[in-house]
């Protein structure tokens, strides 16, 4: 519980600016954490007038998935809206970790050639002892 509180506090320390029409903000960030994980709060946005299904994924520098805690990881987002998503990334024993947090959506599914829009932010976590 205490760890979660600390992580949440660290997430708030980032300067997120939730603006309608942004697909994800912020897209860059550096976080210092005193725990075995670091947290980032991102704001996926829906630039369309229609509701879309949004997924948030976390990858390493080689685009391999990372087992991070994403809350929520899949959700429906109303048109022209944005919402906060909390991502908690474990250091996995390392003293620092670079990750990509990606917001993905396929706004027009069920067509022959679909385009998946993916907005990725780069985040750098440092572990302080």
């Amino acid at each position: 519980m205490r760890t979660i509180g600390t992580l949440a506090a660290l997430a708030v320390a980032l300067p997120p600016v939730a603006a309608t029409g942004q697909s994800m903000t912020p897209m860059r960030g550096e976080v210092r954490s005193f725990t075995d994980a670091f947290a980032v709060r991102v704001f996926p946005g829906n630039p369309y007038d229609q509701r879309i299904r949004v997924e948030v994924h976390v990858y390493d520098q080689d685009f391999q998935p990372i087992d991070a805690r994403i809350t929520p990881s899949v959700f429906l987002l109303a048109g022209q809206a944005s919402r906060p998503v909390l991502v908690v990334v474990p250091f996995d024993g390392a003293s620092e970790r670079k990750v990509r947090i990606c917001t993905e959506s396929i706004p027009f599914p069920s067509e022959q050639t679909q385009i998946r829009a993916q907005i990725c932010g780069k985040f750098f976590g440092h572990r302080r002892s």
């Binding site: 697909s23 990606c102 396929i106 050639t113 385009i115 998946r116 829009a117 993916q118 907005i119 990725c120």
Partner: peptide, 8 residues
């Protein structure tokens, strides 16, 4: 087919 267009 699905093409992923990425901005990062």
């Amino acid at each position: 087919a699905t093409v992923t267009l990425r901005c990062e």
